[in-house]
Design a protein around this nucleic acid. Structure first.
Length: 468
RNA sequence: GGUCCCAUCGUCUAGCGGUUUAGGACGCCGGCCUCUCACGCCGGUAACAGGGGUUCGAAUCCCCUUGGGAUCACCA
């Protein structure tokens, strides 16, 4: 049994979008699942659209996703000599021929066919002329006029194409560069790719490629065309549907494992399971279980899954990821033990790292600013005695555990006759500035004696100023 | 328009001829828990596009219709 070789072959004409990421993911997962190899190839033959920045953006996105490759990156732009050899071979074996029909003539041909209600295709003017190489000539593939070409697709099943639908497509441009279909086949052949997993927008190209494989007397790879990712209006996912780039989701505070989990589950399933770790994905992924129909990208479900991944993550391991998001809110902090404790209080109430960073700010601020509404409602003279008693008791307390803190609060409740609800909210405002936060014992435990007593004093000052 | 693909709750999906009053998840709506907000837990809402066949029996197989998508380059 030969080992599986898959590849991801993006064209660098923009950032990596989630659809492309899913294709990369499926290839990567399948290679990892089978113990095969995953190859990265950059399809940059279109000089006009390919940019260095796009290439870097794609690497960056793949790296963030944790999708690594075993071979490559290979660049089509550096392989022109290889393509030239294969094109020559096809001409030599009679599978291709030079064509001197001008683009204008082809255009006319097309318009005429369209007007007559026919399919716009090359009429074969140069097919039997046996022309040699010459300036301005392209090379066309000699496609069969009759018969059928069958694509045996792992996810779609058998798809039959009438060869009469095909025409003598160009495999080499007049400037000597190969066209997409030729380059892809030569690359996949020479890189020994035996499993091609790609978006189903490529199915119509596949019969041409199969014909090329046959002309080259090569063994066909296994094809798996996975369904597209759509926007909420069922059209192809694009910018007008909102964020589509992988890095945009990174910046929104989505965890790479959550995005991978979501993308994998969009079009693939394993019974009723929704949550998968990276390892589970590798262990359970199988192209045979990929569905046939297109799926709509749902950012809301992605967020829900992200929340699950945040919950399942070890707080300490989340700390380095949280740092840049804290920085964005003006908090410069190190991913230390303190941050791990902060995260432990926030991980069940944050859907994204952006939310978590926002909710974590009060742990780091030197100066708490009170939310006006919250302060007016809860920091009233009536609670001052309770806050004072609490302050005094906490100053005497050495160990800030849930248990010891609860004991202190119970004492204050007994002495003041106030219920916990009446005391907790003012304390919460005093410590966080707002009326929403993690549990009161939790935040006291994390903040520690110094910060807590300082903030309680500040709150008491505030109450005195307001009443006085 | 030609060709090709697809079709289960709003969305992602389970289902691969009988075990189905069609299951799970997200969302939404209730409730419980409770120091706030969440989390968690419990319950509810909601689908086999339509029509013909095949079969004792169809969401599952076949055909048609409808709807959606893809693709028709010297772009990839």
């Amino acid at each position: 049994m030969t080992s599986i070789r898959t590849r991801f072959a993006p064209s660098p004409s923009g950032y990596l979008h989630v659809g492309g990421a899913r294709t990369a993911l499926f290839n990567w997962l399948y290679a990892r699942h089978t113990g095969g190899r995953f190859i990265l190839r950059i399809e940059d033959t279109d000089k006009a659209r390919s940019t260095e920045d796009s290439i870097k953006a794609i690497f960056e996105a793949l790296e963030w996703l944790g999708i690594d490759w075993d071979e490559g990156p290979f660049y089509q732009s550096k392989r022109t000599e290889i393509y030239r050899q294969y094109i020559e071979r096809l001409v030599r074996t009679g599978h291709a021929y030079y064509c001197t029909c001008s683009p204008e003539k082809i255009q006319q041909m097309r318009e005429k066919a369209m007007a007559a209600g026919d399919k716009p295709r090359y009429d074969g003017t140069c097919r039997e002329k046996n022309l040699g190489p010459q300036p301005g000539a392209v090379v066309r593939f000699r496609a069969p006029y009759s018969g059928t070409t069958v694509l045996k697709d792992v996810v779609k099943g058998n798809i039959v194409f009438q060869n009469s639908e095909l025409d003598d497509f160009v495999i080499c441009r007049s400037d000597g560069t190969p066209t997409y279909n030729l380059a892809v086949v030569v690359d996949d052949l020479t890189m020994e790719i035996n499993t091609i997993i790609r978006g189903d927008d490529h199915v119509m190209n596949t019969p041409k490629q199969i014909l090329l494989y046959k002309a080259l007397e090569a063994q066909l790879p296994v094809f798996a065309h996975v369904p597209m990712v759509l926007g909420n209006d069922r059209s192809r996912l694009s910018k007008r549907h909102g964020a589509t780039s992988v890095t945009a989701y990174r910046d929104m505070g989505i965890l790479p494992d959550a995005l991978i989990n979501y993308l994998a589950r969009l079009g693939w399933s394993h019974g009723d399971q929704e949550f998968f770790t990276r390892e589970e994905l590798i262990q359970k992924f199988d192209i045979a279980a990929v569905g046939k129909s297109a799926g709509i990208f749902d950012p809301v479900k992605l967020q829900a899954l992200n929340a699950d991944h945040i919950k399942a993550s070890d707080p300490a391991s989340l700390a380095p990821r949280l740092v840049p998001f804290l920085a964005r809110t003006g908090i410069e902090a190190r991913p230390d033990q303190y941050m791990a404790k902060v995260i432990a209080t926030l991980n069940t109430r944050s859907k994204t790292l952006v939310e978590m960073a926002e909710a974590a700010r009060f742990y780091y601020l030197d100066q708490i600013t009170f939310d006006e509404k919250a302060a007016r409602k809860f920091l009233k003279p009536a609670v001052a005695p309770a806050l004072e008693k609490l302050l005094a008791k906490l100053e005497q307390l050495d160990e800030f555990s849930d248990k010891s803190l609860e004991k202190v609060f119970i004492q204050v409740m007994e002495e003041t006759g106030l219920k916990l609800g009446k005391i907790a909210q003012p304390v919460r405002v005093a410590l966080t500035g707002t009326s929403v936060s993690p549990g009161i014992f939790e935040i006291i435990g994390v903040l520690g004696k110094k910060r807590v007593t300082d903030r309680l004093e500040k709150a008491l000052e505030y109450i005195r100023e307001r009443s006085g």
